[in-house]
Design a protein around this nucleic acid. Structure first.
Lengths: 234, 234
DNA sequence: TCGTGAATACTTGCCTGACAATTCCACAGC
DNA sequence: GCTGTGGAATTGTCAGGCAAGTATTCACGA
């Protein structure tokens, strides 16, 4: 694909690379919710100095991917029911504004179309994590298509927590990827038809369903998340 | 004053206090836009170690109150016309969702009423900075009244940049505070009447006016912001 | 046996000091 | 006048360390 310019530019600095790696491990569920992340542990695992690890944990905390109070060690949060509701309320706020803006222009961002294609491809034969990533890429492209730096930034933060929560339910999913893909198509059609109302309404429906699925799983599992899962990572 | 409990809780940690202080200086315009903030300068002014100053600058950068790329020194940004538009687009997105949610419940957050009273008091005889702060407190209370942690957090970031931009036009303001207060009242009335549509529409009008004022001032001043203003601060 | 309190270990907050890598600025050379 | 090279300034990252706060354990008494 990127044969000419080496665009992606692998994270420039050490701090950046470290941040990306830890972030990925958290949202993928490799680091279980409730697990403690001390500065020295990160520093040891990656062979970096403690201040570097500290900065990394601070960034992740600011994004909501870790929780910690003053002198206590950071832990991966597990969102409860009302936190999921809050998260999805915020998510709807941002994404509704995005699809409305897109529909007013009547143009579908090309990146969203590509992401949607990837989603359908992943639906049949790929791993759960790939599906989640394709789904997130789709919504991300939708918001990015608006062209508002600040809206995208807010959305990025929100999607971080969404990704985290979805990753935590990894093993017990009950979602049919094709249904999700169909709903995505509906949203795109409404945007293309320059119908903001319909686009917003379909998006809301789509997100409400996703939220219900998450809360449903949460309730089903209840407090049954006792598996400590203490495998040493690296 | 604080004879019994010392409530305000002067920022617990050094880092926090430093952050608050620098932040205030930036949004108040004490540190002019375009001015460079090096780590050693902050460290020197406050007598803290460089890593501490570094963390402070990083936090402010994450909030958009400073700009910097790798290996370059942080500068206070001066928002251009399209950045102001982007900022206000994001702001409208968040605040419209907030007033709509409040109007659906039909209850006005008490804090918003208090902030509005303070605003009217400040309109007649107080300094410009107090008016700006009262205005921000009002909008802040509005969003906080919804009770969504994440919406409030997003709004906080946005208001930071709004405050910054307003502070930069400090000397040349042309706004009549009483008009602003009237518009605030209109919004509150719509919320109380449980009319989400009206509340959103009035909010949009209010914010559009604010945006136009800012852009108007920006155009008027043009590139005429040559006063270096190099007074030593402390 | 069970709680309660104190001592200990762990972890974070913040510091000093240092070196490498990078960027910025000015000056010399063509 | 423009370009290139040098030094100064600044940031990225590290090592090591002390103080302070938190959690945990263990002994002791009821």
């Amino acid at each position: 694909m990127d044969s000419q310019g080496s665009f992606p530019l692998g994270p420039s600095s050490l701090t950046e690379a470290l941040y990306e790696s830890v972030r990925k491990r958290i949202v993928n569920g490799e680091i279980a919710p409730g697990e403690k992340l001390t500065e020295v542990r990160i520093a040891g695992e990656y062979n970096v100095a403690r201040p570097t690890a500290k900065a990394c944990l601070e960034r992740l905390t600011a994004l909501g991917l870790l929780r910690r109070s003053v002198h206590k060690t950071a832990v991966v949060p597990k969102l409860g029911e009302d936190e999921i509701r809050d998260l999805y309320f915020s998510r709807e706020t941002v994404e509704r504004a995005a699809v409305a803006a897109l529909a007013r222009r009547g143009v579908v961002p090309p990146a969203a179309v590509r992401a949607q294609a990837a989603m359908k491809a992943a639906a049949t034969d790929m791993a759960f994590e790939s599906q989640v990533e394709a789904d997130i890429a789709f919504h991300s492209a939708l918001v990015a298509g608006v062209g508002s730096r600040r809206l995208s930034r807010m959305h990025e933060v929100i999607l971080g927590e969404v990704h985290l929560t979805m990753g935590q339910f990894q093993a017990h999913r009950t979602t049919h990827p094709m249904n999700v893909a169909r709903e995505h198509d509906d949203i795109l059609k409404a945007i293309e038809a320059a119908d903001p109302e319909a686009a917003q309404q379909r998006l809301t429906h789509h997100l409400d369903q996703a939220q219900d699925r998450l809360i449903g799983q949460l309730r089903r599992e209840g407090g049954a998340v006792e598996e400590p899962s203490e495998e040493a990572p690296a």
